[in-house]
Design a protein around this nucleic acid. Structure first.
Lengths: 211, 211, 211, 211
DNA sequence: TACTAAGCGAGACGGTACGTCGCGTCTTCTT
DNA sequence: AAGAAGACGCGACGTACCGTCTCGCTTAGTA
């Protein structure tokens, strides 16, 4: 699902099918796919809030007809989900030496410029989550691979004795992830530490997670 | 809140003046203020997402003309800010016995039904924060008093030796607050602990915060 | 009805009562009456069409509260009727020498600058006539005295042999009045004569009205 | 009218171009054009005054979105102009036998039920003429063809000796047209003749127009 | 002199309509 | 069949006035 280039699997659906017959008629233009996603990202970077991001503007910016967008995504939400997916890219791979270094790397990776842009878009979709639970799930799936990597690191730490045996993995994931979210996506807590944030956070968590 | 009864101080303004002459003309109806806020809350509770929450519907529900809303708030955002302020109510007061108990109480208080409703609305405003920084600040001000209470508890713990002398207070506040946000407002992390969440979180944090 | 100065008889009513007891309380300000009518006229002269003439603007221009207007006139129509009445003033008096000269004078008097302003306002009320027949009647009453003068001149002409014995007086009044209306009020016929209009019209009509 | 089928040439513009390339995109629906005009006429016939004629009501009655109206006409005036044009239809053709009969026919034709409806609408637009001179001209153009027919008849009468050689054609047109206007559009003169109005008027005018 | 009742400027009130914008769909011609 | 273009029905936006209703303050005549 991560490696696909066309948007056809979006809209909350999983492509499912194995070998489909080649469809008749003119094939969809891959160029259009990219132009559309790029247009969304460009507009968002220019400061257009998602509420103000109109499909009309996206189409115009991408040099594409509105129908071409709706042929690929059933609505604005689905388009945004795929945009988010594209922005995130593949999860980082831990080096595997010390648990602390890996966690610092993972927490840091969640706070790059790229992820800030991602957060910007993500935040814009939150309101819709209350309306459309499918959308929320689709969004969670975008981040799940990264959390899985972190779970792996923590499990490794428990196994090799670096971390307490009875460590609550899910809670620890949340403790390591949520502060970054609150900063990136919400930017809600005004005067939280910004320098060495990852180290500070990981150390604070590990202090209570060691045996 | 803060003692002000009319909504006129909302919309990002501070009333400022001390004893102003009574404004001429018919005064604004306090009944309308309340009816409008109540209508917003009612509609949100009925499952209307903020994106779908129309000023027209609010006016109709409140039995009020649209102009009466716009006379008080310049736009939907400002109205929602005030709604949020109203929904939150005053911050809880810690008992002052053990730091752990106070923190558990504070974290729990952030996860009541009332706060969930609050989160629902808050989430809907996030997108606008990127457009309008004033709005973000206004929103942060709504939550700041609660965070101040938590800071007080932590400082007390540092002073009486219950907590490490070099504890990073802001980081700890973030660690105690963010996971709840991520659950309440974002509900983004699917399988995080839900039972005894407050105890589990506080204990995990304290384990690394004790001397 | 023509000589009254206050607007109290407007709104399609006739004052009726003879000697009323002086009402208690503060009496209505004659200054306000005048200021309101003057404001309407001023605004209309500035090119505000009646459709765009808002009671709010009238009140502001007159330095008067809206209620002060509505205390005197039940609605915009009634106010306009009275404005029209004021603009017209009393009908002219014929000299009584030759029928032709009197008619020329009367036709001319209907085309002064003052009457053009009147026409401007009058035109603006026409649409309402289809809605409110009372309004039409009230308006007709404003012009009736002038037409009565013309009827008198024509009847005198018939009696003293200047005009045909079987002259249709009403039709002749219409023939002498309507062209001026069509020019003044409607300005609908683009290239009709404008110089010596009154003489030309009266002579053309009389040519067929002499014995 | 004038052969144009879509409303696109209305709104005070002249289509101008000769053979334009077909515009891209979905063409405007001719059905909508008709439905909108029909809705206006229907509403007016039901007694809705033009002041009370809301675009919203027109859209609803025509089963059309408001934007569809505004895509064709810039405002209510332009829509009414086109409605008026539609209501009027082509000018009547004189038989060409006697001048008197032709004039009676023309004056009569200006007083049919259809023309009364027309007058009803026309009256409603008068107020706007003072604001928007373009509108007045557009309106005059609607009636001009009919006046041209009448000018033709009068000129023929002058040429064949039925009418005075020095007859003022424009003035005579006005004398024959204005009384009907004053009755139809204004209904301002209360007790003017209504039976045989056309014959009476034409005879009165001709009495002074014969050699 | 104080009381009472209405008028007054100001402006908020519940409404209705405005003209605009964006949604997601449709209909045209072109590639 | 997909594409660009753009019209379609719908519904919300924020504004402007309507005619009504409070406000606190004159401004008279009556007590």
């Amino acid at each position: 699902m991560d490696g696909m280039t066309t948007a056809s699997a979006a809209g909350f659906e999983v492509s499912g099918a194995g070998l489909e017959r080649k469809a008749p008629g003119r094939p969809r233009s891959a160029k259009a796919d990219e132009a559309i996603i790029a247009a969304v990202i460009a507009l968002l970077k220019e400061g257009v809030s998602v509420g103000n991001l109109s499909m009309e503007a996206v189409a115009a910016r991408a040099g594409v007809g509105k129908a071409t967008i709706y042929r690929r995504w059933p609505n604005k939400d689905a388009l945004l989900i795929d945009t988010v997916r594209t922005m995130k890219g593949p999860p980082p791979e831990p080096r595997g030496e010390s648990v602390r270094d890996d966690l610092v790397m993972l927490v840091t990776a969640a706070r790059t410029k790229r992820m800030e842009d991602f957060g910007r878009v993500a935040a814009c979709m939150l309101p819709e989550f209350f309306r459309e639970d499918e959308l929320r799930k689709a969004f969670q799936m975008v981040s799940e691979p990264r959390r899985d990597v972190m779970r792996g690191v923590l499990r490794r730490g428990v196994e090799n004795g670096e971390l307490r045996e009875d460590l609550d993995i899910e809670l620890t994931v949340l403790m390591l992830t949520a502060p970054g979210l609150a900063q990136n996506i919400l930017n809600l807590v005004p005067n939280a530490p910004r320098e060495n944030f990852a180290e500070l956070l990981v150390d604070a968590v590990l202090r209570g997670a060691r045996p």
